[in-house]
Design a protein around this nucleic acid. Structure first.
Length: 192
DNA sequence: CCAACGATGGTCT
DNA sequence: GACCATCGTTGGC
């Protein structure tokens, strides 16, 4: 069952935790979200929206439940779910997924010309924000779309995972904030 | 195992 | 012109 408006309207930190254990679904591709990070408007210099609206971060100021996809390091994409009040500028970054179905298609997208295939291991397919976008084929074409109506959806699950937290990964500002959440003991997270 | 590094290009000042 | 919410490879132990 696709999740609806109320789900996305919870406070950003609550949403970041509630997303754990839910499914990201796109066509035949499906995986369990196992790691997220919250980006807040107030007192969070690590948040793209913290210095106001620019052409890139404009989707962050849209309604909760929209996507915010951007290019990082000229090569990879990151998928965020806009959260908070419309106009506020908050989002949740999806950092890692446990593949459930469409695994061969994911492997095909993730594999490039290399001597050995790290993607032979299931846990290497979507264990990072750039990797999961590559596996699911998510690009800027998926920027600023609604998860409530499109092909890309978040689905419910039965699971109530045990949640752990830590500081966020890869930031040059706001490193001290404990806004990373992940399923405890999951082998599919980007980092211990 | 793990730290260091380069690829690569959009975005913002 | 500097900065990046990354990743795969390389070279050390």
């Amino acid at each position: 069952m696709p999740l609806g408006k109320q789900f996305y309207n919870q406070p950003t930190i609550d949403l970041a935790q509630a997303l754990l254990g839910k499914y990201l679904v796109y066509g035949d591709l499906r995986g369990t979200i196992v790691e997220t990070e919250a980006y807040l408007f107030y007192n969070d210099p690590g948040c793209h929206a913290s210095r106001g609206m620019t052409p890139r971060n404009a989707p962050m100021f849209g309604p909760a439940g929209n996507t915010y996809v951007y290019l990082i390091y000229g090569m990879y994409h990151c998928l965020n779910i806009v959260s908070g009040k419309t106009g506020e500028g908050e989002a949740v970054l999806i950092r890692a997924i446990e593949p459930v179905s469409g695994i061969e298609a994911m492997r095909k997208r993730r594999s490039t010309t290399r001597r050995w295939r790290s993607t032979d291991r299931l846990e290497n397919l979507c264990n990072g924000p750039g990797k999961l976008c590559q596996a699911f084929g998510i690009t800027k074409k998926h920027n600023n779309l609604s998860l409530l109506t499109g092909d890309l959806r978040i689905h419910t699950s039965r699971e109530k995972p045990e949640i752990a937290s830590s500081t966020r990964i890869g930031l040059s500002a706001g490193q001290e904030l404990e806004l990373r959440f992940f399923i405890k003991d999951s082998k599919f997270v980007s980092k211990k």
